[in-house]
């Protein structure tokens, strides 16, 4: 790892000010993505701004219509939260299938979203539940947050503070896990709300996206059968040593049917 300057601010404003001053600053949350990348010298920030002392960024609040989770809340805390399990069980489940227990004991919601790994789990939940990302500067709707491969709507130095998830009628997340890394080869998050059905896919493309074809079919008939026979195009999907694009396209249908079957 190359050397860097380490900062431990106690407020979001201080964190942002430090980021604005530094050469190439990075926020440090759980470090579960950033530190491994720095060890491999894939990332070489001049300054690390540790968010650990920003207490306001941690915690879960459930109100009548939404679940609000602070950016620094651990995956393990979301997975174990009785309140989240009651309000949006699929969200707790999603957090509980990220990586392994030790990754969940350090990794955070904000870090996962800012990083926007194509195979990350939380983006599917954020998009599927039509959540809102709160930052130090504004609020960003899920539909415009994920921009591309490791690319989000965040500006340099902009800090995610929390995410609010509207509580759906029912929702489910089905993940086809890579057996070694535990990342999603394909994950599908299905949510049914008063406003309709949303289907979000992760692992398959450059970043999480909505499967509108499946949403339309489910809006007419919310059952796994409604998805039978729908052919998903492999155009633009990821191909790598783990799975070819046409296999991923196939898995989207399989995971979507499983998710719908769980809540139909």
């Amino acid at each position: 790892m190359y050397s860097f300057a380490y900062h431990r601010p106690v407020s979001a404003a201080e964190a942002e000010a430090l980021a604005a001053k530094a050469g190439e600053a990075r926020f440090l949350a759980g470090g579960m993505t950033l530190l491994p990348a720095m060890k491999l010298r894939l990332a070489q920030p001049t300054d690390l701004i540790d968010l650990a002392r920003l207490g306001d960024l941690r915690g879960i609040k459930v109100s009548g219509s939404e679940v609000r989770i602070g950016a620094m809340t651990l995956h393990a805390a979301v997975a174990a939260s009785a309140e989240v399990k009651r309000a949006i069980p699929a969200l707790a489940h999603c957090a509980g299938v990220i990586g392994d227990p030790q990754v969940r004991n350090r990794g955070t919601l904000g870090g996962s979203l800012a990083n926007n790994d194509p195979a990350a789990d939380y983006p599917a939940a954020v998009l599927g539940l039509n959540a809102t990302v709160h930052t130090s500067r504004r609020t960003i709707p899920a539909d415009s947050f994920f921009r591309g491969l490791f690319e989000t709507a965040l500006e340099p130095g902009e800090l995610i503070t929390a995410v609010s998830f509207p509580i759906p009628e029912r929702a489910a997340y089905e993940k086809f896990r890579h057996p070694a890394s535990r990342y999603a080869v394909v994950g599908v998050f299905v949510a049914r709300t008063g406003g309709g059905v949303r289907v979000a896919v992760t692992g398959a493309g450059p970043c999480a996206f909505r499967a509108t074809q499946l949403e339309q079919a489910l809006a007419k008939n919310f059952s796994p059968d409604a998805l039978k026979g729908i052919k998903i195009s492999a155009d633009g999907l990821n191909s790598d040593i783990h799975a070819a694009a046409d296999y991923r396209a196939h898995l989207i249908g399989v995971m979507a049917r499983r998710a719908v079957a769980a809540i139909a």
Partner: peptide, 27 residues
């Protein structure tokens, strides 16, 4: 390992198991 995956370095930090290879001492 160098990839945060093997778990040989697991210790408890304030009672929770964590990978000590994927944390800075200053943290």
């Amino acid at each position: 390992c160098d990839t945060s995956q093997c778990g040989a370095c697991v210790v408890h930090l304030d009672g929770l198991s964590v990978k000590s290879c994927s944390m800075l001492a200053v943290q």
